[in-house]
């Protein structure tokens, strides 16, 4: 039971980082990307390859995952600079679809459909941290550091400039904001954090394959952010807890036959999302809109 809870907590921590990273894009910069699982995946593959080929240091893997995702975030920044609203959503969908194909086909890098297996246990400066408890501790520390960084950045002039762009791009420009640079940086920051989450995920699962980086995953993370509340620190975390714990909780309910859990889950998510957007469009933590 404890092992189960620690496992769940670790998964929630990793998704907490992922949701917080998407919140930088959606909540603060107003960039509605549905390709976020791509950058989660890039970080996971990068971390896994580092561990398999060189050294299974989880901190190095996080840095490598973050760096790869930040570098390739230009693929998302480019459309974000050119189009907005539903056009950008469509563009990011295209990126998501391309990435899944690349992930499935680039055998030498991603292991193709089979994925990368046998990722060695995580170490940190040579010490083994692969046991559930220390690994959870490390993941929590990463989450705390990243949340603190997001808080500092978003409460400062960088965050205000991003939110200004989100609310009116042309007015932000008229007050001297370099929209292209700011959006590019915001996308790089959000994607880098997603890459860090991906590297942690690779060690947590001990294998990675394309199934974890599909459109469905992107939509799940977006649902976490929107249900929890955009542009708040707590919102995405709340969304993660709800959407991860709900399935876990449902499996304890005796009157739902196990075969029906999936369907019941989908119904509850869908209903919750619809009701929330009607009655509390800024999300659970978002207050009034």
């Amino acid at each position: 039971m404890t092992a189960y809870l620690i496992n769940l907590a670790t998964l929630a921590t990793i998704f907490g980082i992922l949701a917080a990273s998407l919140n930088v894009l959606i909540g603060y910069a107003g960039i509605f990307s549905i390709a976020h699982a791509v950058f989660f995946g890039l970080g996971a593959y990068a971390g896994a390859q580092l561990a398999l080929q060189f050294i299974p240091d989880v901190l190095l893997a996080c840095l490598a995952g973050g760096a790869i995702s930040a570098a390739l975030s230009l693929c998302l920044a480019l459309p974000a600079l050119r189009v907005r609203g539903e056009y950008f959503v469509a563009a990011s969908l295209g990126l998501q679809m391309m990435a899944v194909t690349v992930f499935s086909e680039a055998h030498s890098l991603t292991g193709g459909h089979g994925g990368l297996v046998g990722i060695p246990p995580a170490t940190l400066f040579g010490a083994d941290v692969s046991a559930p408890a220390p690994f959870l501790g490390f993941a929590l520390a990463v989450l705390a550091v990243l949340l603190l960084a997001v808080r500092l950045l978003m409460r400062g002039s960088f965050g205000r400039a991003l939110m200004a762009i989100r609310d009116s791009e042309s007015a932000a420009e008229a007050f001297g904001k370099d929209v292209r640079a700011l959006k590019t940086l915001a996308v790089a920051l959000g994607c880098a954090m997603a890459g860090v989450a991906g590297a942690l995920f690779a060690f947590y699962m001990a294998f990675v394959n394309v199934e974890s980086f599909t459109l469905e995953q992107s939509i799940l993370v977006m649902a976490m952010v929107i249900i929890g509340g955009t542009a708040t620190l707590a919102g995405p975390l709340l969304g993660v807890l709800l959407l991860l714990l709900l399935p876990a909780g449902l499996s304890f309910l005796p009157f739902i036959p196990p075969t029906q859990i999936g369907a019941v889950q989908q119904l509850i998510y869908g209903l919750a999302m619809t009701l929330l957007m009607i009655f509390r469009p800024a999300g659970i933590a978002g207050g009034r809109r």
Binding site: F158, R160, M163, A164, A172, F175, L182, R289
Partner: peptide, 30 residues
């Protein structure tokens, strides 16, 4: 050169104070 817009284009979801702050801050990370 500073300008206003016929349709205002305020930073709607930001506070009044942050609207003015954002307008005058040179952008920087921290």
């Amino acid at each position: 050169v500073a300008r206003s817009f016929q349709d205002l284009r305020l930073f709607g979801r930001m506070s009044v104070r942050d609207n003015v702050r954002a307008a005058i801050e040179p952008t920087a990370w921290l």
